[in-house]
Design a binder for these strands. Structure first.
Lengths: 146, 146
DNA sequence: TCATATCCGAGTCATTTAGTAGGAATTATG
DNA sequence: CATAATTCCTACTAAATGACTCGGATATGA
């Protein structure tokens, strides 16, 4: 019941992009340095985010990545699902289906999985990247004043 | 972000025990037959539940397992945590700690993980084994009347 | 005493995770 | 035009985890 490094690193990369890609392209290299994540691995992660449409790229010198939307239009749920797949606690085709399972004992547990799934998705869909950026800037500010 | 078979099978085993161990000891074998889970594997799973104190055993002939408490005193959260470990989406010693992380970018994501964790635990701690038993009996009844 | 149970340590096999390595393609800049 | 910076892409690998199985020791009711 754990997220993988893809989800964890990817969310940090997106926060980094939101903060740094306002005008300029941001290279893998610079994200990698700030976030201390290996360039090679980060590349793979960002490829997933690009494929999902949250990031666009420019190749060549001075190239890099930018967000495709404003940070308040991208939810943590969007990011995590792009990187981790669905956030259901079980792989069950019936989880979003009201049909009664043939095996009744499976059916009862299904209600549990559905409620867990709904609550996770509800949380992550109600936190935007912008929320995290705000939080981050707030922390940075209070760190400064020490 | 998935539960393992331990959690899934274990929850079904506990529902089975709640229904069948009212007076009698229930053997691994009988649970295994009803739930179609291998005896050997089920044994390991129930050992965890025993260690966690939700199940007691009697060895020897006519032996088997029983719940240690009434089903309304055992939550789904109790069961899942016994089998899966904590239900946090990340291994982070700081998740239940309000300290500010040294690495500020880690700190921001921590809020996300904490909120996911809280919501999962809130769901599973508010469903009791008795709730599932009731649900199960309800389904069985409506199946009969077809 | 024997059939029925739990208990328990060790071993196996497949899959997933968490990366690395290296080179091809693209492009701004001097 | 050459070059350095950059993304893109395929293949590979090591370690960890998940999902079991096996076999025998131990306990006990009939």
């Amino acid at each position: 019941m754990k997220l993988s490094t893809k989800g964890r690193y990817g969310l940090r990369a997106m926060i980094d992009l939101a903060i740094h890609s306002k005008e300029n392209q941001v290279s893998i290299k610079s994200i990698s340095e700030r976030q201390e994540i290996s360039e090679n691995y980060l590349e793979r992660i960002i490829a997933l985010l690009k494929k999902a449409g949250y990031v666009k790229s420019t190749r060549g010198a001075q190239g890099g990545y930018m967000l495709t939307k404003k940070p308040d239009q991208i939810s943590v749920g969007n990011i995590l699902r792009a990187l981790e797949g669905d956030l259901n606690p079980v792989d069950c085709s019936l989880i979003n289906d009201d049909k009664v399972c043939s095996e009744s004992s499976l059916c009862v547990t299904k209600f549990v999985w559905k409620r867990i799934s709904d609550s996770i998705n509800d949380v992550v869909d109600n936190i935007s990247l912008q929320d995290l950026v705000n939080e981050q800037l707030e922390i940075d500010k209070s760190q400064l004043s020490r």
